[in-house]
Write a protein that binds this DNA or RNA. Structure first.
Lengths: 221, 221
DNA sequence: CCATCTTTGTGCACGCGTTCACAAAGGCAT
DNA sequence: ATGCCTTTGTGAACGCGTGCACAAAGATGG
């Protein structure tokens, strides 16, 4: 029986072995003292805990470059995700296969969600359409949304939204790059400042009192 | 002079006002007591600190769906990023314009990096090509890499790599979704487990001792 | 010029997550 | 069966980041 010790795993993952053991302990006691963890059993338990053993049908709305890239992305299937449908507002796209799946028109959205029991939606539309799409998804029963559009979505309680900003990662790289290139080492406020900067820009557009600003574009030129 | 108080900004950004003030204090004292922060000046200072006032030429390597999506992504320009070149290994792509920029062949990679003074590279190639592209970028002088390919890149010291895994976000959503759907509330180990799971899978492939495993595919079916 | 009011900047305390360290548990050899 | 060795599981301590609370600073009005 192939096994791994917490020490080996910790070294491989670059974390502390005690933390790793404590994390595992929350899932129950799967290890054997003096031996380690049964690799196969451990992998299964973690997979189950993370929901990888379930089948998660997802819909992708907005089949532009990004939507197509997501549809073709190989990483989804192995993680338990199944692209149940591709949806686009452009009638010219309807029926056209992307990644082997025919694109369907937005009109079908509610039916698709319902028929497939979809609870996770991916929004890859332009910013302008995102909120509206979001609302239709939620109304149709979707409770988790992955948002690639550069907008902050507002959703009712009980719905999870995760926003992926493709430029934020570049921003972080540029920040470190700037540090390498000299400069006096000053701040460490990092991702935090980002959100705050956005709020500041939003507030700037208002008369002076601006809670709940929702302007997504952060910096003026 | 339009100003904002830390209280207003904190409300807008959804954070604590004291934390916000403390963060700002690391950049220096730009506020005026009894008044607040001069919006324009604050925005400028934060922009400067984050490197938004600089011009960052970037190259995108691998012009598939994802590369094209990135090239078309509007968010870059406003954050100080300029797509200096698009590079692809397919000779058929050469010269073809994407997002108004002609694609160039991989052969030109070193020259492009050098001519444009590029220090940030984006890898959107298939997994198999990523490491090789990475090495060429580094050799040509790139010191920051944004990796969309599902591989762990190994780079020399001094080079920053950020990996964007498009499925990890879905995974997190699925995890919460699973929680909503009942289950006994157990673990809270989350992103941590992800890395550890990867390490476990890597170790499974080895005889038993497996530090520094680099197998990227996480879970077996 | 002084009093008052607002808001910043920051010392201090609390709480949480990480790490240390060790007792308990199980395997294995004798 | 017994003792030793390895590795887990976890109580306790440490450290760091967040939030509280207040003194200092500056504006504003009388």
């Amino acid at each position: 029986m192939p096994t791994v010790s917490s020490e080996e795993l910790a070294a491989a993952a670059g974390v502390n072995s005690a933390k790793l053991r404590k994390d595992f302990s929350y899932l129950g006691s799967y290890g054997t003292r003096g031996v380690g963890y049964d690799v196969e059993y451990l992998v299964y338990q973690i997979s189950r805990e993370l929901g990888l053993t379930q089948d998660w049908p997802v819909v992708i709305v907005g089949i532009g470059n990004l939507g197509a890239a997501l549809a073709n992305y190989g990483g989804f299937a192995s993680r338990g995700f199944r692209v149940a449908a591709l949806i686009d507002a452009d009638p010219a796209m309807a029926g056209k296969p992307v990644a082997g799946i025919p694109v369907q028109h937005t009109d079908e959205l509610e039916k698709i969600i319902d028929d497939n029991g979809v609870s996770i939606g991916v929004i890859a539309t332009p910013a302008g359409a995102a909120q509206q799409v979001c609302e239709r998804l939620v109304a149709a029963g979707v409770t988790s949304i992955l948002n690639f559009a550069p907008t902050v979505l507002s959703v009712p309680d009980g719905v999870d939204v995760r926003k992926v900003d493709l430029s934020i990662e570049l921003q972080i790289l540029a920040f470190h790059e700037q540090r390498k290139a000299g400069e006096e080492a000053e701040a460490q406020a990092d991702a935090a400042l980002e959100a705050e900067a956005g709020a500041a820009a939003a507030a700037a557009g208002k008369s002076g009192k601006g809670p709940d600003g929702d302007v997504p574009a952060v910096m003026p030129a």
